[in-house]
Simulated scan of single mutants.
Amino acid sequence: MTLSSSTPPSAQPGGGYRSVFAPGLLAGQVIIVTGGGSGIGRCSAHELAHLGAQVVLVGRKADKLAAVQQEIEADGGHASAHSCDIRSEDGVVQLVQQVLAAHGRIDGLVNNAGGQFMSPLESISARGWEAVVNTNLTGGFLLARECFRQWMGEHGGAIVNIVADMWGSMPGMGHSGAARAGMVSFTETAAVEWARAGVRVNAVAPGYIASSGMDNYPPEAAQMLRAIPRTVPAGRMGTEAEVSAAIAFLLSPAASFISGTTLRVDGARPQGRAGWGMQLPDEQARQRAAVQPFEGFHRAQTPRVFAKAEAAAAGH
């Protein structure tokens, strides 16, 4: 079984992002992407720039943001980078002010920044709990609120909040599960309250995605991560580009009557049930076009935990 996370030859750097959406779809729009320095944020920033948007990369590490900005500009896109700790209310207020001063508008927000650590509930300190909740819930709320207050409340816009596969709980990361569930509720509430201003608010819930974020887990988690595809009905992990495509769709005019929803990108993972024998796709089924992994990101990189496994399987 392949992990479907390696970059195909046709998608190497220099080939350009291979979006399924029409060129120029988001031309003239200014879209903020938090957590834009790596993983899903980096991928979606590339696709949005490819579609014509001016992308505003936001994160805490200026060097990572600068690297992604350089990538986007090398590919012919437009991006700017702004360092900000989204957990700081004053910092977020100033960030939105700076974006408006630099670009004059904010059409979209991708609330992607997040993070967590593996731990059973009884071992999580109040400080650890607050750090995860503030990053995955409060920070996203602050960004959305300020975008609404300072621009979207008068001009409309679209917000996409990135959550996670927390349906049925997240044992081992209960702080993240609580925060993500809270973000889904916030998404639904904001969609109702802000509809009067022409603002749509949706969420995307990635399942198990072969993203660089998995490189942040401790070495002892490697065996568990490599076994994940066997728990997914689709029989594989998703790609960053498959999540990015969902984000781009929800930001696009095609989603103009969609608000308050959470779009899952998870290969039916939450539907797995104890007592149901998991019937993974065989090799013939894997080759069918309808379930082939979408590898649109020309700069995608296989997470180290999987790259090592692939090298070992190849005898390297």
Rank of each mutant, 00 (worst) to 15 (best):
G177D: 02
F117G: 03
Q97S: 09
Q116W: 14
V184A: 13
N202W: 09
G168Q: 10
E71C: 04
A45R: 01
Q70L: 09
S10L: 04
A53D: 00
M214Q: 12
E242R: 02
K308E: 13
R304F: 09
V56D: 06
G260M: 05
T135D: 07
G235Q: 13
V132D: 01
A307G: 13
A221D: 02
G15M: 10
G238D: 02
F306L: 11
S256H: 15
T231Q: 12
A49G: 01
D266G: 08
T231Y: 09
G277P: 00
N161Q: 05
I40F: 09
M183G: 08
I162F: 01
A178P: 05
I162D: 01
F306V: 04
G104T: 09
L143M: 14
P13S: 00
V201Y: 07
M1Y: 15
G115E: 01
I86K: 05
S6N: 14
A248H: 00
Q292L: 15
R145W: 08
G238A: 10
M183C: 12
G91Q: 03
S88R: 02
V243Q: 00
G272T: 15
R200K: 12
A203L: 05
A53K: 02
P9I: 13
S252F: 06
A22K: 13
A314Y: 00
G235H: 13
W129G: 01
S211N: 01
V133K: 03
L51E: 01
T7F: 11
G104K: 09
S123D: 13
M118Y: 15
M237Y: 14
L137E: 04
R18D: 14
V93P: 07
A11C: 00
P293N: 08
A181T: 14
A268Y: 14
L48K: 01
V33M: 06
K64N: 11
R145A: 05
T2S: 15
Y17S: 06
A144E: 10
M152W: 03
E89T: 10
A245E: 03
E220L: 06
Q94D: 11
G315S: 01
P233K: 03
K308Q: 13
V92D: 04
A178T: 10
N134W: 04
E73L: 06
T187W: 08
G198M: 08
C147A: 11
E130W: 03
M173W: 14
A197V: 10
S5I: 15
D63N: 13
A254W: 15
G37Q: 05
F257Q: 13
